[in-house]
Design a protein around this nucleic acid. Structure first.
Length: 279
DNA sequence: GATAATGTTCGATC
DNA sequence: AGATCGAACATTAT
């Protein structure tokens, strides 16, 4: 269930494993997986290769050698797997890209929320997957962030999940980011002043880059293209730790769970205060 | 069987 | 008009 660090890991893995291999054919096993209809993918992809592997937020951006762009959003359970010639298709295979050399790149997705979309040259931003998202969260500008927060009453953690403000933060990293900068996730956004927003921006960049360095977080489903688990689950300070003791040395607090914007949210009420950061 | 799951979008309501 | 909330989407695992 990928967020920014997991999609970035996918991007790096694909760049390395697929590189400029030629796509010889595409099979769409689940038409629902393709925004714009299955024919949009099967027409004219044969003979093409990926010229560059890019990403914005949780969206993979594969630029093809003919100028078109293949966009992919894994949503909750989408992932790529590289199969060797005699490997069987995974149970939830949705789209299969046949590559020169006999390998197959499979997009699999049990819950079927993920989407692939092929955009014409110069029109990728207008597609359904990119048109609603803001700048990538790895480059988190504090002044811009503050402007986005100042007239909103929503809890700060809910705003971190708003992809139009910053693209890429999901439910795990949102709780971890709030913990990192000592901010109560329920704090109304407009209560943050510039110093706190700066702390928040710094915490966002720090947590995401650690997530990337450890190749993402595996709690149950997420696997890298090579089928391996990520490593950031070992570093989670609050997510999924309801009732456990806070990891900060000497802190007597226990991790609490509340629901914000319909999603589980974890925090230490001792370390995390409203509108105030931890020293 | 009920519940929750790392995501987004839509419609209803304020 | 804009903000906000809950339901919906679909499937699996506990």
């Amino acid at each position: 269930m990928p967020e920014l660090p997991e999609v970035e890991t996918m991007r790096r893995d694909l760049q390395k494993a697929v590189g400029r291999k030629v796509i010889t054919a595409v099979e769409v096993l689940d038409p629902k997986a393709v925004a714009g209809g299955p024919d949009s993918l099967t027409t004219g992809l044969a003979g093409r290769h990926v010229r560059s592997y890019d990403r914005r937020g949780k969206v993979l951006i594969l630029r093809l050698d003919d100028g078109r762009t293949l966009l992919l959003h894994p949503r909750m359970t989408g992932r790529f797997q590289l199969l060797r010639p005699h490997d069987e298709l995974p149970r939830h295979a949705r789209v299969v890209f046949h590559l020169s050399g006999g390998q197959r790149l499979v997009f699999e997705d049990p819950r079927r929320f993920g989407r692939v979309e092929l955009r014409p040259a110069g029109e990728e931003e207008a597609g359904t997957l990119l048109c609603r998202i803001g700048p990538d969260a790895t480059r988190c500008d504090a002044d811009r962030l503050r402007e986005a927060l100042r007239r909103r009453r929503t809890p700060i953690k809910a705003l971190l999940l708003d992809q139009t403000i910053l693209a890429g933060i999901g439910n795990i990293y949102a709780s971890e980011i709030c913990y990192r900068c000592g901010l109560d996730p329920r704090t109304p956004s407009h209560a943050l002043r510039l110093p706190e927003v700066r702390q928040l921006a710094a915490a966002t960049e720090a947590v995401l880059s650690e997530g990337i360095a450890l190749r993402g977080t595996t709690i149950s489903d997420y696997r890298t293209v090579g089928g391996r688990s990520g490593g950031f689950q070992k570093r989670l300070a609050v997510y999924g730790r309801e009732g456990e003791i806070c990891l900060r040395a000497g802190c007597p607090g226990r991790i609490q769970r509340v629901v914000l914007a319909g999603r589980s949210t974890y925090f230490c009420s001792h370390c995390q205060r409203k509108g105030r950061r931890r020293k």
